[in-house]
Structure formats: structure tokens, C-alpha cells
Amino acid sequence: MFNRTAYGLIALTMSLTACTVVTPDAGQQAVLIDQPYFLGHGGVRPQAVPTGRSITWGSTSAIYVDMTPQTVHVAFNDYSSADNILLDFDTAIQYRVSDPVKLIRDFGGQWFKNNVASQYSAIVREAVKTKTMTDMMSNVSAAADLDRQVTAQIRRLIRDNGIPIQVLDVTLGRAVPNANVLEQMNETAAQQQRLRTLDAAKLAEDARKAEQESKAAADDAYRQKMGMSVEGYLQLQIAQIQADACRAAKQCVIAPPGSTVIVGGKL
């Protein structure tokens, strides 16, 4: 049976022979965290491992930190505009880490969730209240101004908290009315389109009526000028219609009123 000394020797051997292979990809650095088995000091090492391969002894873990620009997407729903319209946003924060060791040591791997997310939500909520829905959806300069306003406040938050990242840009994206508001807007648009269609139809009917009345007045003026009765003028119009039809058909027979026409040898 092993005694305490034997167990201690086995544990010591394991601590001396254990190793951790660290291989940061291009654009990454690895932050090492020592977790000694028995003796020594644990915690974050003061130097990060740059891109490449490194072997470290003892019980050590690694957190890989991207040093290239990164983007965090955060969605917000039902934020009220200046005109009390509920809007949804799909926002993006672009940033770059400046000191990976300090970031992990002082703020941990969940630094955004624990130190930025709730304040960011409040900043966006208050900023959205300063603009109307139309401004945020249709006015490019107003939307850009809103992005600049939020970006400045996020940079101030990061600086005041000492978080070692550089905020490159914040974009709120296009404001989208929430589902209920959008349904109401679509119904309103449909009603407006129906009214425009009815107005256009009425205008067309009025135009046709005016045209017909104008033609009738011109015809009556011509009849009176020629000294014709209404019946005589109508017969003239009928004759003109028949003549036009014959010219179009290139062959026809015009029978005087009251005549009987025989077609195909049958009466």
C-alpha cells in the first residue's frame, strides 16, 4: 500500500512532466493562466504568447484572444422613438483588443457581457428616444448622427472603465418597426393605395364623361350649322358608320332602310 510520501512523489512527477501546447493562429495571442497542482503562484502570466507554437510546463490553460478587428452583434427590440413608435435594431460594435493580458486578467473572457452589455443597452435606448421613426428609417444624416452619438458614449464607457480595447465603430443598423407596428403600417399603406386607385378611376371616368359631352356638343353644333333635323343627322351618322365598315371589310352591301337582304339564295 502506498504511503503519503509515495503519493506526493507521484503528484510531484506529474506536475514536473505535464505540459501544455499553445498554438495561437495568425492574428491571435494566447493568454496563459497558471493553475499549479500544489506549490507556486497561479494566475495570469504577464506575457502573452504570440502567433506560433509554444510549450509550457505545469498545469497551465490558455485563452486565445483575437488581435484583429472583431465585431459584436447585439439585437434590441421594442425601443421607443421620439414619436413613441416601437422599433427593433440589429446593432454592431467593431473593436480591437490593445492589451490581451490586461483584458483577461482584469475583466475575464466574458468582458463584454459583464462590463459593457447592460450599459450599452441603456445608451442605445436613450439615444433612440432623440430621433423619430421617419428620421431613423429614411433620413441618412439623422441615422449617421445617431451612430456617432452612440459611438462616442461607448468609447467614453470603455475609457472610464479602463477596458483595454479600441472601439472602431458602432452601427445601429436600419430601424425596423416591431411586428405589430409594421402590420399596422402595411394596412395603412394598403388603404392609402386603395384610395389612390379609386381616385385615379374617378379621374378617368370624369375625363371620359367630359370628352363625351364635348363631342356631343360639337356634333349638335355641326347639325345646327347644316340645318339638319336630329333624325336626319342620326341617319347621316349611321350611313357614315356603314361606309367605314365597308371600307374595312373591302366588300359589303348597303341596303336602303326597309329592304330585305337575301343571303346564300335563301329568303
Rank of each mutant, 00 (worst) to 15 (best):
M1N: 04
F2C: 02
N3A: 03
A11L: 00
L12Y: 03
L12E: 04
T13D: 01
L16Q: 00
T17L: 00
V22W: 09
T23A: 13
T23M: 02
A26S: 07
A26E: 08
Q29E: 15
Q29W: 11
L32C: 14
L32R: 08
I33L: 15
D34H: 15
D34F: 06
Q35T: 13
P36M: 00
Y37S: 12
G43M: 02
V44G: 09
R45S: 10
Q47D: 14
A48R: 07
V49Y: 06
T51H: 04
R53N: 01
R53S: 08
S54G: 00
I55Q: 02
S61A: 14
S61R: 14
S61C: 11
A62V: 09
D66C: 15
Q70G: 05
Q70Y: 00
Y79V: 13
S80G: 11
A82P: 12
D83W: 01
D83F: 11
L86D: 12
D90M: 10
D90R: 04
D90P: 02
D106A: 01
G109P: 03
G109F: 06
Q110I: 01
W111P: 14
W111L: 10
W111Q: 07
N114P: 10
V116F: 04
Y120G: 04
A122I: 07
A127T: 12
A127R: 01
A127E: 08
K129P: 12
T130P: 13
T130K: 14
K131P: 08
M133L: 10
M133S: 11
T134F: 11
D135Q: 14
M136H: 04
M136A: 02
M137F: 05
S138Y: 14
V140D: 11
S141Q: 11
S141A: 13
A143G: 10
R148G: 03
Q149L: 15
Q149S: 15
R156W: 07
I158G: 12
I158W: 04
I163F: 06
I165D: 03
Q166I: 14
V167E: 05
V167H: 00
T171S: 14
L172C: 10
A175E: 05
A175L: 00
V181Y: 03
V181L: 13
Q184N: 15
Q184D: 10
N186V: 07
E187P: 03
T197Q: 15
D199M: 12
A201L: 09
K202H: 04
K202F: 09
A204G: 05
A210N: 06
Q212K: 12
E213Y: 02
R223Y: 08
Q224G: 11
Q224P: 08
K225W: 09
K225F: 09
M226K: 10
L234M: 08
L236F: 01
A243N: 06
A245L: 13
C246R: 07
C246A: 13
C246G: 06
A248L: 07
A248M: 07
Q251H: 15
Q251F: 12
V253A: 02
P256G: 15
P257K: 13
G258Y: 12
T260W: 12
V261N: 04
I262D: 02
I262H: 14
I262V: 14
V263H: 10
G265E: 07
L267M: 14
